[in-house]
C-alpha cells in the first residue's frame, strides 16, 4: 500500500472547486440542450461558496464535509442533495485518518456511490452522473484488487470516468427533468455525468500529485 498524509489535502477540494467554477458556462451550455441550463450556475455557486469557506489547513474529509454542507443547505435542486450526500458519505468513510492509501480511497469512492444511490433513484444507463461514477468506482476497485498500485488505479479511474461520461451521449434520459424529452435527449452529454467526471478527475489529479 502506498498513501499520502491527509494533512493539507483539503486543497484538493479547492482545486476541484476552481475547476467547476472555470467550467460554469460550459456546464450550463450542455445542460441547456436538454435541461434548463442552470447546472453550471448552481454548481459554480455551491463549489465557489465552499471554496471561500476553506481555510487551507483542512484534511480532505473536512473539506468535503464543508462542501457537502453548502450543497445541502444552500443549493437545493437535484444536484445539491446528490453531490451533498456523495461528499458527506465520502468524508465519513475517510473519517480523519492520517494517511489516505488506496484501500481508504476505494472505501471513500464506494461510500460516495452508495450515498448517491441511496438518495437518488437512477441506475446505470439512465443518462445521469451514475454513468460516470459507477464505472469509475468499479475501475478503481478492480485496480486495487489486482494490486495495480494507487497511482495506476487513479489513472484507470480517470479513464473510466471519461468513457462513462461520453457514454451518456448515446443514452436516452430516464430520470430527472431531461427524461421528459424521451428520444430528444439522445445525442448530447449529460451535464451531471460531465460535472462528475470533472470532480473525479480533480480528485485523482490532486492525489496523484501528492503521491509523487
Amino acid at each position: 500500500m502506498t498513501g499520502i498524509s491527509s494533512k493539507g489535502t483539503g486543497a484538493i477540494v479547492a482545486d476541484m472547486a476552481a475547476e467547476i467554477v472555470a467550467n460554469k458556462a460550459y456546464l450550463s451550455e450542455i445542460d441547456g440542450k436538454i435541461g434548463d441550463g442552470d447546472h453550471g450556475v448552481n454548481m459554480a455557486k455551491g463549489f465557489g461558496r465552499a471554496a471561500e469557506r476553506l481555510k487551507g489547513e483542512e484534511t480532505l474529509d473536512e473539506a468535503m464535509q464543508i462542501l457537502s454542507d453548502v450543497l445541502m443547505s444552500e443549493i437545493g435542486g437535484s444536484m445539491g442533495p446528490l453531490y451533498g450526500m456523495m461528499f458527506s458519505d465520502m468524508a465519513d468513510a475517510l473519517s480523519a485518518r492520517p494517511v489516505i492509501d488506496e484501500a481508504a480511497f476505494a472505501r471513500m469512492l464506494r461510500a460516495g456511490l452508495d450515498g448517491v444511490q441511496d438518495i437518488g433513484s437512477a441506475k446505470v444507463g439512465d443518462k445521469t452522473l451514475l454513468d460516470c461514477l459507477v464505472p469509475a468506482v468499479e475501475a478503481f476497485e478492480a485496480a486495487v484488487a489486482s494490486n495495480k498500485g494507487f497511482a495506476e488505479g487513479l489513472g484507470t479511474m480517470k479513464a473510466a470516468a471519461a468513457v462513462g461520461r461520453d457514454s451518456t451521449i448515446d443514452l436516452v434520459a430516464r430520470v430527472g427533468r431531461s427524461s421528459r424529452l424521451g428520444e430528444r435527449s439522445r445525442g448530447v452529454l449529460d451535464a451531471g455525468a460531465t460535472s462528475c467526471c470533472m470532480i473525479l478527475t480533480s480528485l485523482a489529479d490532486g492525489i496523484a500529485k501528492r503521491l509523487n
Partner: peptide, 9 residues
C-alpha cells in the same frame, strides 16, 4: 427554491 430549482432539504 432558486428559479425552477427545488428548495434545499
Amino acid at each position: 427554491g432558486e428559479l425552477f430549482s427545488s428548495p434545499t432539504a
